[in-house]
Design a binder for these strands. Sequence first.
RNA 1: GCCCCCGUAGCCCAAUGGCAGAGGCAGGCGACUUAAAAUCGCUCAAGUGCGAGUUCGAGUCUCGUCGGGGGUACCA
Length: 989
Amino acid sequence: MSDETPFRYTAAMAQDIELAWQDVWEDTGAFNAPNPAGPWAQPDEVAALGSKMLVLDMFPYPSGAGLHIGHPLGYIATDVFSRYHRMQGKNVLHALGYDAFGLPAEQYAVQTGQHPRKTTEDNIVIMKRQLRRLGLGFDERRTYATIDEDYYRWTQWIFTQIRESWYDPSVVRADGSLGAARPISELVSALAEGTRSVPEMAGRAWSELSAVEKARVLDAHRLAYTSEAPVNWCPGLGTVLSNEEVTNDGRSERGNYPVFRRNLRQWMMRITAYADRLADDLDRVEWPEKVKIMQRNWIGRSTGASVHFPVVPVTGPRAGEPTTIEVFTTRPDTLFGATFMVLSPEHPLVESLVPEGDWPVGTHDSWKGADSGATGTPREAVTAYRRAASRKSDVERQIEEKDKTGVFTGTWATNPLTGEAIPVFVADYVLMGYGTGAIMAVPAGDERDFEYAVKFGLPIIDVVAPAGPDGQVAEGWEGTVAAGAAFTGDGIAINSANADVSLNGLPMAEAKARITAYLQEQGIGAGTVTYRLRDWLFSRQRYWGEPFPIVFDSDGIAHSLPDSMLPLTLPDVPDYSPKTYDPEDAASEPEPPLSRVPEWVEVELDLEDGRGLQRYRRETNTMPNWAGSCWYYLRYLDPANSDALVDPANERYWVGPQSNPVPDAPAGTRDPGGVDLYIGGVEHAVLHLLYARFWHKVLFDLGYVSSEEPFRTYFSQGMIQAHVFRDDRGQPVPAAEVEEHGEGAEATWTWRGQPVTRELGKIGKSLKNAVSPDEMYEAYGADTLRIYEMSMGPLELSKPWETRAAVGSLRFLQRLWRNVVDESTGSVRVVEEEPDQALTTVLHRTILGVREDYEALRFNTAIAKLIELNNAVTKLAAPPRSVMEQLVLMTAPVAPHIAEELWRRLGHEGGLSRGPFPVGDASLIVEDTVTCIIQIKGKVRDRVEVSPAIGEAELRDLVLAREKVVAATADGIRTVIVRAPRLVNVVPV
RNA sequence: GCCCCCGUAGCCCAAUGGCAGAGGCAGGCGACUUAAAAUCGCUCAAGUGCGAGUUCGAGUCUCGUCGGGGGUACCA
């Protein structure tokens, strides 16, 4: 310990300063944001502030594992941004709550017998303390957790609103487009009055329907409904999962257990009703293009046509009655080339197309199925194939080669344009879950169909040929059979004509338009749009989630609980665990924990619907984790409001549509409103962000919010990665104990004497490379950690963590400190003299640059500019007060504790969370001379000091007179490019 | 396979189409110290993965290619 510098800024001093200022902030409510209305209405305070700004973080799950240094990255970024804007007098709302329902707490409860509420609340306390130590400026009044009864009361209320609504495609919205959620009561009235009918009524009058039938009709339209549908059943977790929670290889995203398709009655959300709006409105928000693409892909809208292929069933009750196989195609222009059809193994029509008895005469052996040889019958072959397909788990389908398999059904359909009989196959490369589960196969125009046709010896007719330079069919094209591959690109239609219609010679777009019109005219088909997006599976067989505010009557009809019965609280249960099974046991049945509390499940209630006291059975599933995180940003706006999820005036103020659309929005776009800045990782790109947008749009349609989108601006942060060291068995070893030898490309690493390899990976306990924020506070302080994380590189990129590099950030703060405080005496050492012109120039250039950087989230370059200015001051004998004050203010967003402390020591009272923030003056950026570079043909050949105010003509003359220029231009000059005062480029002949 | 992002000093990263370096780490030298750590000062270091093209001029724009990362995949 040195006695000579007792006032040096060290980690220990940083700790004292940081803790003290965190107390001050808490005591003064420094980050409280006033509301215009609602229980906390402070309209005068709102009016006294400038414009509003709502900054949002990803909703954290309070894990018991503790934070590592990767977790707070986004929180630091939003805090810097919030502080910067707050210092400029804006009303900044930045708050943090907790997404506290969920599996880990429940699994921990199962292991320890502790109530999940207890462990969850304990974890929240721990996490709050860790985050507070970082100096994050949250409005502490606005924190809550999704497990709070007065929070999930509203989650249940929103669910009820969604369930009591349907999507009316004929409603004209304010912007003139069609379709919106409306109360289901409107549908009931219209059906009762007969002004509307729906196919589910099968032509009967509403009054003729029984209660059960009415409920079934309405369920076909409600935005939240129960359905017996194939779902993702995960025996290992004992619950069902949404499509989004299942990985590509057919396993659970959480736990990596096998997932099976099962028919089970489950709650669904009709998100597909919003598919178009969810896709279209991406144009109106400011999000990374990458994330927009991921959402568009997930929604998977594709436009094409549905086409009916005549076919005559050969068995079953409808045998002999002509019907059609409906297919969806994005290439109706290739319909003349459809030489066979394929149904998915699950397609309902398959059964009726398989003839009894033997194969039709002449059926090729390869069409009769893999193992049947020439002996089996069509029924045996098809049944065997379908059984094999159904037994394949999704995992097996993925692992298998994409080798085409299939079986001929024994029946031919008719190509509606050519009149040709085309064979119908069953093959598992056609999926029941997409389109109609049946395709027309055009081998010449589709790679998969081509492969299948080649394997099964089916005809291939070229219907599109590549276009030559003249826009006609390219000369010398030998066709797809000769090429050995389908032609899937844009081209010119050929071989595509019958007596009524010809596409020949047309490019793809025109061919599509003409044939679609023709199909429509003939009643064979119509233009259609299909989506990859499926309705959202919304129930889980878990304990630790929001109970559904739903009861079933003795007929099994679901009823929403009235508002007065909310919240429906979660009862205690004898056992928190759902019944889990052998992960491979596909035949197991879900059994939710709540079903084991009969006194809670069986109730007698008056639902205030005029039916009086009735016996009911409660829904025993719970909502998925996404429910609470679908609307949490709205509750920050008015967390104490017990009359509404958010007061409409508060909603309008904080997230209402703004007067200007976001940058790059199409001309004429109306602003959708939403959060001003949302920072988070890309892992939520399709799940959380899509679900929340859907709920928000329902709330908008129903008039509860004025904004059409929840997240107006979204920024996707990169990941902090860390080196992973592995021993010769490939096991990670503790990164902190690894020694490095040599440097650069020659570097090697050892752990306890044995050589280890190094790679870059995620941070985590299992990889033994986690560094906790607490270690960093101890060694450097929170401000240094904040500066280091923000200066590592662009926020959107992933960057490797290197603890030893953080010392650079500490040194910066030490130099900043030393420029204000004498390290040996503790006295303030700034002088009252004004800075000279050179420093004034650096100062104002810095202010202008730093402001731009903060606004654009370029914190790494902002910090570099602050360091540069500080280094310039360090070189002086005495730091000018005016410069240091402005530097301290500019540093405050990234390193708020030290900035507060220095600001106080510089003699200012009252803290600086509300500023001021320096304003730069471009006119004070004055330089005596600037260096003009002189290029000959673009290469730098000379330079000259000139006045920054030099005119173009003067500079040109000056440069042309230079010796090197004269020498280089002996043969004359072609052109001279002058960019006064910095550059002249002379191009000789 | 397809789509997106990134390749600049040993490392992390800057650079409105205009002198490749803002900032940091590491390294080297020096100061301070009995010594070390810490701190301070100075310093070394790449022609921008590779190949074409556009341009008076390319790290930056275009095309191709290689490498790394991410997304997605029989989606008709």
